[in-house]
Nucleic acid binder design. Structure first.
Lengths: 354, 354
DNA sequence: CTGAAAGCGCTTACAG
DNA sequence: CTGAAAGCGCTTACAG
């Protein structure tokens, strides 16, 4: 099964290589009989065009890169990245592209990655998943005119195309939910490591503002999105006697649950808890955990769609797409106080625009 | 920041493009002053070679592909793929390669993926993560002489290079552990969807054989590695009154735990449970779950190393690398019967070769 | 509608 | 040790 070239296929079909190229690429103005003859040879020989040669000649690789920076340590523990990647892969397949995955593990690799991406003609564009505030890649990409779409938010958000989920509204809904149930001492486990953490704290604050309440700083603890950090933050909060806690990531919420369990505090009788993120296996295993559900897979898909538009020279009008999230209420969060019979163990979705 | 070519760099340095090429590629026999002069121009101009052109000319893309077939639905819920990908990415970075990710979502996409990979010159080789018995890709790859390394085991295992974890021994250890604790009715939740499922059942059977015990078919239930399936399988087993259960995946184990909880059965007093796989967040959230830990990340890394060897024309002697696993004993599985004070909540590793 | 030809940016024998 | 030249397999104006 030797590799054929356009030239050879042309010879077999009795036409020039240019004509074969046109047939392969679906160029319209070709005499039908010629097209068929060529197509038959292609089918019979199983000819496949060399993608590298095509890319070189056309100055388009049809490869897009997905960059996962080293800051994103959660890659292992959090289904966030798998879901996102799934969506991106779906987008890539839909648009007949190839996906190159750049995972950065250390700071040295950051430099190396940038170098191997920029100016090498390998990728047409990038999707950058970086929610860290001190972002290394964006300035470089901007400087080199590398087309890209950012997932999440960063300091550069207003200069770039990005797609994100609505973290502010999500946290607002979560907090408001607890407020509306009458909880008085609503703590939060936040994070200040990244922009989504900031946004989620903003949502918490917004709900408090709406209810004319002020935030008690002693009821605010910080974690790093990791399970352990949720555990420690909760242990730190318990002495403050919160009657509810909004944990800004489900992974941390699982840690927090462990701390509550250790402290013999029952959920939701002694304390209500609301998480964020919807980690499939863990959350399903805790069917009581009320949480905010985000359309992560869709985020990835839309990021690709946006990048494709940019690459085709028809960038979208708006620089940002912010996807709605929803509050999924289950038994943990004061369902007992709401209506135990109706809600316990059930899933109730709240619309985003209340 | 216009894109420079070798030719232009050569002009600036007063040498031919061939010489610049040799400097860029670290060719040894070059007069030092020339090398320096060229290198300076490269540094000053920020010249980066066009990877596509290089690939075309050298017939080596330095891109390897990672294929995740549609059978692997667990991509979302299981940290297995993220961990593996992490290891592969580390291997790719270490070997100065680029990783192309091919995620297949449907059967139609399978064909499309094969076509876009095979005979297009895009990838030098592949890593195929397919543990399904009815594997679609392997025969095609074999037919087209595409170099590849398989992760896991399949019907073609003896014809291909592969790296895997030791599923048979892992399950053997898990089961033996329960047997050695004196449990009499040790059920299992197995799966017959893939080869690792077969291997894990074999390990279960091996341990029974070693103890001169026969397997009670009524204590064998099947799931699909999903959480729900674990739940249903456990519900099915409960009427058979097992006193222990070996669940061949932690995701299913979480489902099983839920079923036990619903049935008001306490772990480990009423029934002991041992899982498999070590899903970080979920398992950490259940610190009682004894499980088998596999070196997944390392599996990915070694797969890349193996592929690199194959591509360099020095394939490894053995066609398979099987990595050891370990039993991590925690409180759930009859630790109480062992030595509650010493083992409860602790992690005890058993070596693979007992 | 089709072909001859230039060109994409590199590598790599081949001379010297 | 270095350069001129052929070649990798495509695309794409340009003629006709």
């Amino acid at each position: 099964m030797k590799k054929l070239t356009l030239e050879e296929v042309g010879k077999l079909a009795g036409v020039s290589r240019a004509t074969v190229s046109r047939v392969v690429n679906g160029y319209p103005h070709i005499r039908p009989e010629i097209r068929e003859r060529v197509q038959r040879v292609i089918d019979e020989t199983g000819y496949r065009p060399n993608l590298l040669a095509r890319s070189l000649a056309s100055d388009r690789s049809n490869i897009i890169g997905l960059v996962i920076p080293s800051g994103a340590q959660a890659v292992f523990t959090d289904p966030y990245f798998p879901c996102l990647t799934q969506g991106i892969a779906r987008g890539v397949n839909t648009n007949n592209l190839t996906l190159a995955l750049f995972m950065v593990h250390s700071e040295q690799e950051e430099e190396r990655t940038i170098l191997s991406i920029l100016g090498t003609g390998l990728v047409d564009g990038l999707i950058v998943t970086s929610d860290n505030k001190g972002d290394v890649f964006i300035p470089e990409l901007l400087k080199h005119d590398m087309p890209f779409v950012q997932i999440g938010r960063s300091l550069y958000s207003n200069q770039v195309y990005r797609v994100d989920t609505d973290n502010v509204t999500g946290s607002y809904l979560a907090t408001k939910h607890l407020l509306s149930l009458g909880y008085q001492r609503i703590a939060t486990i936040a994070t200040n490591r990244n922009c989504s953490g900031d946004d989620r704290f903003t949502g918490y604050a917004n709900a408090f503002a709406e209810y004319g309440r002020t935030i008690d700083r002693r009821l605010v603890a910080y974690g790093d999105y990791g399970l352990e950090s949720g555990y420690h933050a909760m242990r730190q909060l318990i002495p403050q006697r919160p009657d509810a806690v909004f944990v800004t990531s489900d992974t941390m919420a699982l840690g927090a649950l462990r701390a509550l369990q250790e402290a013999q505090l029952r959920v939701p009788d002694d304390i209500a808890i609301v998480g964020y993120d919807d980690l499939p296996p863990a959350v399903q295993a805790n069917p009581q955990l009320t949480t905010i559900r985000q359309p992560i897979e869709q985020t990835g898909f839309l990021a690709v769609a946006t990048l494709v538009k940019i690459l085709s020279g028809e960038p979208p009008e708006s620089h940002e797409i912010v996807l709605p999230v929803e509050l999924v209420v289950r038994a943990s969060c004061g369902a007992v106080r709401m209506n135990a019979v109706e809600t316990a163990g059930q899933t109730v979705s709240y619309p985003v625009n209340p």
